[in-house]
Design a protein around this nucleic acid. Structure first.
Lengths: 353, 353
DNA sequence: CTGAAAGCGCTTACAG
DNA sequence: CTGAAAGCGCTTACAG
């Protein structure tokens, strides 16, 4: 079995000690050229290709990879399939390439991620949830990390966006067009059936959402309030982005909130589901219904009609996050700007009855 | 430093030997419940969260991840951004999810991949090139693997497609429509400027291509021959898929082979580049020019016009490959079927002058 | 510049 | 069921 040659064998054949053999590979400048060549020759003869990373890892070596944990309970498959995630990963992977590191995608339910945070063989993490912060600090081997889209305090690096302002802009845009009857398709991070939050329920809380989603709700509320509308009177459906769940959410919205002339969707994925469901029902967008998305993910441009949405710098966000992980400087909290982009999914409401 | 607690500390506090403590975590059935609880209590008190995977790995433990090496010299960023790769990864990641494993994406130049094959902390590999096979068998820790899109002999598992037949179908389709003047936009796997292979050069070989690409060339040739056309008379441009390179390739094709009424592209990515370049030049597809792609990646449907292309089961291919890695059975060679899909990028040629 | 030794954190036969 | 010992493959002070 040629794979079982170890550094000790090479050392023996070369007639040097184990330590010297190790140095020949890792700190060649500490070894006389002559000896270095003996070791190299022995290694060649034995078919030894260099120190096994498993042994090296134990002494504090690098794994040459960073782990990414997409927010919420989604599978690797769903993550990769999400235009949002893909754009973000584009930025992350650019920086990985620069650092000659590989990319480990960890996804699934909370317990699986928790397991991975403690056990994954990586040099750092991009996290998607505050709860994961504690776990990563409990690791045997400390590694740098950054949390996405949530403030985790001054001691933890985070990169997020101004979701509240973005959401407010979206709602203001619809209000300016003359809309007064709204419905919200909110984000749920968990794989559960869509949840109906009827209007006028004074203490409504999204149940499967993350802080960013709450911020967006507040942002919608800010705009409504300025127009004399109470957020409490706006019906909300909360739904999970992957295919199936989100379409069900869009469908529920049409069933239970048929009077809305405009829908505020917390992601472009949600908005596209509304578009699809509207077409299925013969409702024309934007003539019969206006829809505003969030993120400006690639599908916002390719949808039919192209989405009015709130853009965030997804690729740049990935770059910044990855740089924090590789750079390892002091904790920093970045907040990235958002911007309303008007396309063709919004217009003035039709004359109301 | 709370992270430096090790199993030995837990064992001491619990008043048991190291071996018993290890068993309490890994083979609880071998430990009396009472002792098991002592160990658990000690661990809790010390804030010990389970054996460090680094130590465990050395004794043959699993990394709980598989590595994927996209074919050719592309960055992680480009890989993720490729609709082809994404569909493939969708299948791979589905099976990863089933096996509760994570996904390590290794990309870049050959030497970086070689390094990763020998050193990456994974339990198996999906490879993109025959040359990588030898490296993975040289690993200290043997792991199962599969090679994509190339026959690596009966001892190595591989998953590929019938590229020759697929390419023949593409060319036959154009011939049946009446086309006689062709040009080929071929695949290069390396980041080099487009390469011009003029017609009538008898011994043309693609220089940056993989076996599958040669197969496709042969397939085109099969169809041409049956129609009395020599492949040698068909101009070829070879170009690398990522943005920039491929557009340059398409542009070169228009410059140097302006008389072609139909273009055979070796991937949908290449075909889309032709569509874009055609529009830029005011050439209407399919009226002035027919284009056939390959793969039926997601962008084949969303392009304008939608592409006539040769479909391969990309997602299923990913599933099959991943199952081979996780399943670890005897070597097998799968060849997946292809199928011509006619959309709107092909039509009869205009009356030729 | 080189060697002998200790140790990284854990698991696994082997005795008992 | 439990313990003492050897070892996984390597690196790193520490002497010389």
């Amino acid at each position: 079995m040629p794979g079982s040659i170890k550094l000790a064998d090479v050392a023996k054949l070369a007639g040097v000690s184990l330590g010297t053999a190790s140095n020949a590979f890792n700190r060649p400048e500490r070894v006389r050229q002559e000896v270095r060549e003996q070791v190299a020759a022995a290694a060649r003869k034995l078919g030894y290709l260099g120190p096994d990373p498993k042994g090296r890892l134990l002494m504090g070596g690098k794994a040459h990879a960073i782990g990414v944990l997409p927010a919420g309970e989604i599978s690797v498959a769903h993550a990769i399939n999400s235009p949002f995630f893909r754009d973000f990963m584009l930025g992350v992977s650019e920086i990985c390439d620069e650092n000659r590191a590989n990319l480990l995608i960890v996804s699934g339910t909370k317990d699986r991620k928790d397991w991975a945070i403690r056990n994954a063989l990586v040099d750092g993490f991009i996290l998607g949830h505050t709860g994961e912060v504690e776990l990563v600090s409990q690791r045997h081997q400390k590694v740098p990390f950054v949390v996405m889209d949530v403030d985790a305090g001054p001691d933890v690096s985070s990169v997020r966006i101004d979701g509240r302002t973005g959401a407010r802009r979206a709602a203001e845009h619809l209000l300016a067009l003359g809309h007064r009857r709204f419905a919200i398709l909110a984000m749920s991070r968990r794989p559960v059936s869509p949840i109906w939050h009827p209007a006028s329920d004074l203490s409504r809380r999204l149940v499967g959402s993350f802080p960013l989603d709450h911020e967006k709700l507040l942002g919608y509320g800010d705009a409504f309030e300025a127009a004399g509308i109470s957020l409490d009177n706006v019906p909300i459906v909360e739904s999970h982005p992957p295919t199936g769940w989100v379409e069900a959410g869009a469908s529920m919205l049409f069933e239970r909130a048929p009077k809305a002339t405009a829908i505020l969707a917390m992601s472009d994925r949600h908005a596209v589901a509304v578009l699809v469901e509207a077409r299925r029902r013969g409702i024309r967008v934007p003539r019969d219904l206006s829809v505003v998305g969030f993120d400006n993910a690639p599908d916002a441009v390719t949808s039919d009609p192209p989405l009015t949405t709130v853009a965030q710098p997804l690729v740049e966000k990935g770059r910044i996050a990855a740089r924090i992980v590789f750079g390892g400087g002091p904790p920093r909290q970045d907040i990235l700007p958002v911007e309303l982009i008007v396309r063709s999914s919004t217009s003035r409401p039709r004359r109301q009855s």
